[in-house]
Design a protein around this nucleic acid. Structure first.
Length: 484
RNA sequence: GUCCCCAUCGUCUAGCCUGGCCCAGGACAUCGGGUUUUCAUCCCGAAAACAGGGGUUCGAAUCCCCUUGGGGAUGCCA
């Protein structure tokens, strides 16, 4: 069987981590099995769908390197790939269902339904459509028709036990009594999600439907439709949900939510993918390895290894994974990515000469190992671009005001002043000399100088810091600190 | 409410299917120590979990049931 999977976002909002993982696992499955990955836009909700989001979502996918084989922008044998362009196909299928007599028009108004629901809840029942229009007398139906009353087509759910075979959860059974006669076409004429999904998955020859667990109960409806339309059911796999840090469904409220946010924060797509892959999944032969390349992931990935329980999104761990990727990044590449952020902070001008690029690169190299995301870069680099240290931090001030430390700074400055070349060797020598003269070593020796130069307890390696700052700035800063 | 799904360290997870190798392994975070005359890295170590209760069994994290807890679904949203 040809493996064909799809990612089917609805363009009613930006892509978030949950969507992204669904897309990723589908992509992984396709690549692993030499199948096709299809991008289908589920824009049956004309009210809320916009092309802007379609555009944004496809951009996010591309950014994640999740290339698709068929899609609205690429074409393919089974198009069109936007549901709003598939109206005729849905109509055709509706006619088949009409002929089979498994659908019926429902004339209930939203108000009717609302009232019905309220009554049911009040009685402690599960809210569901009571199928009243299914058994409408012909005379009544004729009258509604004459009145041109608006209606929807509902599917007449047959009494049965519905069994959904899920690759992750095994057989899940539903009693048809729990599934109300659902709407296939809205009064506006457009189709509902359930109808479109079933028709499209069948017609696009989707072999495996891999999606979030929130669709598990919907699957009962979809399966009914496949059967009624005499289509073979695809295989289903419902992945566990990703929860926010507070244990509730991931949303705008619990922190960063859209993928675009993470991109802006300076998370690398490779890191995000690597982190996400371990949400609800672990390789069959788990060997205490945490960092996997895309290639490795698509080799090891297996739907059978996806777990059943939901997982919380751990931002701290994402940062750790990201830092791993960041520190391995080629320095030219990293510097190029840093440029926009540094411009935004007004550390550099819009156009960067080759010479300037090298300078910036030297600075970026100093903080490469310390950042968890690109967004942390500007604040760590600021001291190399601006000469505005004030030593306001009481912790810093106390150290710099200390008598011995002033002597250290003074001695250090005197030697530095006459130093020709700031090589590691020379600097080491310089520190040795200060150590000998003042009789202080280790942290006690390095910290005052570090603070005078950066006003921070931590930072880059001191020799490197001095080298990048250069003689004049080092001396100016030390002078300033001595006067404190 | 009703239905469906789920339940191992704070978090992500390995182990569960095919009971004994598990007084439960790894990673992030936390804490302690070491290397680096500073910083970061790195290394070592500590603390930290089988939700509870019943079964089945010689033996259960692993199988069954109940309870509890969490999530999802109950739309002319997807």
């Amino acid at each position: 069987m040809d493996v064909r999977v799809r990612f089917a976002p609805s363009p009613t909002g930006l892509m978030h981590m949950g969507n992204a993982r669904t897309a990723f696992f589908n992509w992984l499955f396709a690549r692993k099995n030499n199948g096709k990955f299809i991008l289908r836009i589920e824009d049956t909700d004309v009210e809320r769908s916009t092309d802007v989001f379609t555009e944004a979502i496809t951009q996010d996918l591309s950014w994640l390197h999740l290339n698709w084989d068929e899609g609205y922008d690429k074409g393919g044998e089974y198009g069109p790939y936007r549901q709003k362009d598939r109206g005729a196909l849905y109509q055709k299928h509706l006619n088949v269902l009409k002929e089979k007599g498994v659908v019926y028009p429902c004339y209930c108004t939203p108000e009717d339904l609302d009232e019905m629901r309220k009554n049911q809840i009040a009685k402690g029942q599960m809210p569901r459509y009571d199928s009243r229009c299914r058994y409408l007398k012909d005379s009544q139906r004729d009258q509604y028709e004459r009145e041109n009353k608006s209606f929807v087509w509902r599917f007449a759910v047959p009494k049965s036990t519905i069994v959904v075979q899920d690759m992750i959860r095994g057989d899940v059974t539903f009693d048809s009594d729990r599934v109300s006669d659902f709407v296939l076409t809205k009064s506006s004429g457009s189709v509902t999600f359930h109808f479109a999904v079933a028709v499209d998955d069948a017609c696009m020859k989707i072999s495996h439907v891999i999606r979030g667990e929130d669709h598990l109960t919907n699957t009962a409806k979809h399966v009914l439709l496949f059967d009624a339309l005499s289509y073979e059911r695809p295989k289903f796999a419902h992945m566990p949900m990703i929860l926010g840090p507070d244990g509730s469904k991931l949303s705008k409220r619990n922190g960063l939510s859209s993928l675009a946010d993470y991109r802006k924060q300076g998370f690398l797509p490779e890191a995000i993918l690597n982190y996400m892959s371990f949400l609800g999944w672990a390789p069959q032969k788990y060997e205490d390895k945490e960092i996997f390349s895309l290639g490795e992931l698509s080799k090891y990935f297996d739907v059978g290894d996806i777990g059943k329980s939901p997982s919380m999104f751990d931002f701290v761990k994402l940062k750790w994974v990201n830092s791993k990727y960041l520190s391995r990044l080629d320095i030219d590449h990293l510097t190029t990515m840093a440029l926009p952020l540094l411009r935004e902070s007004e550390f550099i001008k819009d156009d960067v000469s080759e010479e300037n690029f090298v300078q910036v690169k030297n600075i970026v190299a100093l903080v490469q190992d310390q950042i968890n995301s690109l967004s942390e870069l500007p604040s760590l680099c600021e001291m190399y671009f601006k000469d505005t240290l004030t030593h306001e931090d009481p912790e810093v001030k106390v150290v710099l005001e200390e008598r011995t430390n002033k002597e250290i700074l003074l001695t250090f400055k005197e030697i530095l002043k006459d130093l020709e070349e700031f090589s590691d060797k020379n600097l080491k020598e310089t520190f040795k000399m200060v150590q000998k003269k003042i009789g202080v070593k280790g942290k006690a020796l390095y910290l005052p100088i570090r603070l005078a130069l950066s006003s921070k307890m931590d930072g880059a390696e001191l020799y490197k810091m001095i080298q990048v700052l250069g003689k004049k700035r080092c001396i100016d800063r030390i002078n300033k600190a001595i006067l404190l």
